[in-house]
């Protein structure tokens, strides 16, 4: 009995010294095995129990169990301490991650995607393939803009041949003609694309910019349909409360023609030209104006993007400053 008592004291003393110095989990595991392994010191001590006289067995058992629990708890506590310290010191989760290079979509691309989606929802087929250098016929003549007509001044034109027969298209409208030549009505197309003008590069002008245009030809397409379509288009683009104003205007390829303004941020902004397809345009592509009617509309996409994103200088869209592009 005394032997047990003194061994318990000795083990407790030793253990308390050792445990204080253990600083990693491996050493702790070794310590656990030293005491509780098959031949561990505590395990061995329990083996002595059977040689203790019966009347002292209860007392000896109590002493041993006390020691066992004490050591076990101390090891567990230490394990927790070590694990805790280990996790805290391994890495700092507040540091930033590895630098990444992220992709950014150009604001004009974002606007195009939005426009195309709205157009698709309204039943338009989006056409993105078309020549940007055009003939006089498709850019002007077939659109009822004869040579030597002052209406030509509405489009300051860049030419690539001396006889002015080949030019950089001034609007996306040639695609109306090219499409109608190939297909029979009904048709409903939406054409986004690049257009060019003899304009200086300044805050509000660019020699190259984007337009989008819609054309719908069917039996009984009317001015009322044009209004309805554009109103819905504008609501999708600018919000459900958007108001539009239609005033008479002139385009050689539409009759009647209208100019449309949107009420946005407290002011009326001219954004779009439109009208009913001119009978002469139908004649140019061989459609019978008595059977078919249609509407067309066109607008500057850059201007839309500038309104939408609050950009005041069109040059920002084309100079590719990465700080600008990363804002989108």
């Amino acid at each position: 009995m005394e032997e047990i008592r003194s061994k318990v004291e000795q083990i407790r003393k030793e253990f308390n010294q050792i445990i204080a110095e253990v600083s990693d989990l491996d050493a702790l595991e070794r310590l656990r095995i030293r005491y509780f392994g098959r031949k561990g010191e505590v395990t061995e001590l329990f083996k002595l129990l059977k040689s203790v006289p019966a009347e002292q067995k209860k007392e000896a058992g109590r002493l041993l169990n006390e020691l066992k629990n004490e050591v076990r708890e101390a090891i567990a506590a230490r394990r927790q301490e070590i694990e805790a310290s280990f996790e805290r010191e391994a890495y700092d989760i507040t540091l930033p991650g590895r630098p990444i290079s992220t992709g950014h979509k150009h604001p004009l691309t974002q606007v195009f995607e939005e426009l195309n989606e709205i157009a698709i929802g309204l039943g338009f087929e989006v056409i993105t393939k078309s020549p940007e250098i055009e003939t006089d016929y498709y850019n002007f003549e077939a659109l009822n803009i004869p040579a030597h007509h002052p209406a030509r001044d509405m489009w300051s034109t860049l030419f690539v041949t001396d006889d002015h027969k080949m030019l950089l298209r001034t609007h996306t409208s040639p695609v109306q003609i090219r499409t109608m030549e190939k297909r029979q009505p009904p048709l409903r197309i939406f054409v986004p694309g690049r257009v060019y003008r003899l304009d200086p590069f300044d805050q509000t002008h660019a020699p190259a910019f984007y337009q989008a245009e819609g054309l719908y030809v069917d039996r009984n397409v009317s001015f009322a349909d044009l209004k309805g379509t554009l109103e819905l288009f504008a609501k999708e683009l600018f919000g459900p409360k958007t108001k539009l104003k239609f005033v008479p205007s002139f385009f050689p390829f539409t009759e009647p023609s209208a100019e449309v303004s949107v009420y946005y941020n407290g002011e009326w902004l001219e954004i779009l030209g439109c009208g009913m397809v001119h009978p002469k345009v139908f004649e140019a592509v061989g459609y019978d104006p008595e059977e078919w009617s249609g509407f067309a509309f066109g607008f500057g996409v850059d201007r839309m993007a500038m309104i939408k994103f609050g950009i005041k200088d069109i040059r920002l869209l084309y100079e590719s400053d990465i700080r600008f592009l990363k804002e989108f």
Binding site: A119, F223, D225
Partner: peptide
């Protein structure tokens, strides 16, 4: 032009696509 009401018909047989 303001006195001409707006109208919007269903897309009919023409399906929007891209």
């Amino acid at each position: 032009y303001d006195n001409i009401p707006s109208r919007l018909e269903s897309p009919g047989s023409l399906v929007g696509k891209w």
